[in-house]
Design a protein around this nucleic acid. Structure first.
Length: 437
RNA sequence: CGGAGUGUAGCUCAGCUUGGUAGAGCACUACGUUCGGGACGUAGGGGUCGGAGGUUCAAAUCCUCUCACUCCGACCA
């Protein structure tokens, strides 16, 4: 993509409404613009990242055996009355009246819809287990939206739902999602630590929040230092095998958010206790018959008699995750994207725009890299070097390929690593080889 | 939802106390100089001062109502 043709409205100054770093940087890097409180337009650069994250989430869900479907944003309110949540949810749920005076709700989550599908379409125990998920926009009419996409009203969420015959089956589904989450967040370039979470009045102790550690996180968290180096399950993990060992490994050590903090437990960890700030990016939850009971979600068991489904739900805040990644990956100059979610892999910086030697060298590099499938943002604008460097640092592409007249005289270009700041001079051919390897 | 603020150019803000023909910096356009870390000069374009009503000869400025947004708290993917 040529920057001269790209919609990238960067800002030099900090918009006054943005209080935390990810919000500021997303506005300054031209990724989002607010349309109403907690509601954003995703500009091209931001949307590219959102799709990258979404795709990683999708791949790991699929790998774990979950199946993607797509549920509507607007839901029938009768389903919510049936589950008993229509009144329980309160004003946080946006209710809309259509021309026939029927009340629709803009889904804050989709348990009702998916359980309606399940009870209609799942007939026999032979059709279990199932894990179904969708990645869809949700709306929660937060009293006070803030922190940009970290706490918006409209947000993109992956929500998965499992349907099993027994508790043991449900636990296995839970483990699948648990493992998939470890992989998903790691692939996004952040370390998320599962921490024990409260499950509300339904009971059970089977729920974990996945917390990304970041200096600017919203809540205080405590965990054993060993979590920082604990190995992430490989992509070869067999999701049909017993996943308890992995689950046990990742839940054996102390990890708690501020409201679950227990001084005695924390003290027992001793010098290995890590106290940090964290951001919740996902939650897994076993809820048993909470919905299958009121909504009568049952399949025929082996004896032909109906068996109520054992359920669980598993969310990832996709749009929030982007904010969390920025909170964890930035410096004073801007964002530092992990390569897996970067909007482009490399920024091609032409320091001699208008000079034939430089233009030709850049056109050549751009063509070769693009042809090799590398995503390149080519800064072909007629701007000063400082402006181009600042833009690149701000938007945080992993590599900057800097082409200047000075270097071209020696037959070299410069490759800068955004994260380390390291710059290396090399021939254009070597640069292409490096970036396409 | 309680408390506190802010709405003036695309962005950051001044002007309001004490009413009198709408400003600065950045951004944008043109030209010139500059040219490897957000340059400089000159000349421009751009605002029914959030909206409605009121007071007044005269309202960005005073009064009333209203809408939006932000911050703190409670709540939360």
């Amino acid at each position: 993509m040529r920057l001269s043709r790209y919609l990238l409205p960067t800002l030099k100054e900090n918009p006054v409404e943005a209080q935390i770093v990810s919000h500021r940087l997303m506005l300054r890097a031209g990724m989002i613009r607010q349309t109403a409180a907690g509601i954003y337009t995703w500009l091209p650069l931001g949307y590219r990242v959102l799709r990258k994250i979404e795709q990683i989430v999708r791949e790991e869900q699929d790998r774990a055996g979950a199946q993607e479907l797509l549920m509507p944003t607007l839901q029938n309110s009768d389903l919510w009355k049936e589950s008993g949540r229509y009144d329980a949810y309160g004003p946080e749920m946006l209710r809309i009246t259509d021309r026939h005076d029927r009340v629709l709700v803009y889904g804050p989550t989709a348990e009702e819809v998916i359980n309606d599908i399940a009870r209609n379409e799942l007939k026999s125990y032979k059709e279990t287990p199932k894990i179904l998920y969708n990645i869809q926009w949700k709306f929660r009419d937060e009293v006070r939206p803030r922190f940009g996409v970290m706490r918006g009203r409209e947000f993109l969420m992956k929500d998965a739902y499992s349907f099993d015959l027994t508790y043991e089956g449900a636990k296995h589904s839970y483990n699948k999602m648990f493992v998939a989450y470890l992989r998903t967040f790691a692939r996004c370039g952040v370390r998320a630590i599962p921490m024990k979470a409260s499950t509300g009045p339904i009971g059970g102790d089977l729920s974990h929040e996945f917390i990304v550690l970041a200096e600017t996180g919203e809540e205080q968290v405590y965990c054993h230092k060993d979590y920082l180096a604990m190995p992430i399950p490989s992509e070869d993990v067999d999701y049909d095998s017993d996943l308890e060992p992995i689950y046990n490994q990742w839940t054996s050590l102390y990890a708690a958010t501020e409201d679950k903090y227990d001084e005695a437990e924390a003290k027992a960890v001793g010098d290995n206790l890590l106290s940090a700030r964290g951001i919740e990016v996902g939650q897994v939850f076993y809820y048993g018959k909470k919905y299958s009971n009121p909504m009568n979600v049952a399949v025929a068991g082996e004896d032909g008699k109906p068996v109520l489904i054992e359920g669980g739900c598993y969310g990832i805040g996709v749009s929030r995750l982007m904010g969390a990644i920025i909170e964890a990956c930035h410096d004073d100059n801007g964002i530092i994207w992990p390569e897996s979610v970067a909007p482009f892999k490399v920024g091609l910086v032409n320091l001699g725009t208008g000079k034939e030697v430089a233009d030709k060298a850049c056109d050549d590099l751009y063509a070769k890299l693009t042809k090799a499938g590398v995503e390149v943002l080519y800064d072909d604008r007629d701007e000063r070097a400082g402006v181009k460097f600042s833009t690149m640092d701000l938007i945080g592409l992993p590599y900057q390929l800097i082409v200047g007249l000075r270097g071209l005289e020696k037959g070299v270009v410069e490759l800068k690593n955004r994260k380390t700041g390291e710059r290396r001079e090399m021939s254009p051919e070597d640069a292409v080889a490096f970036l396409t390897r």
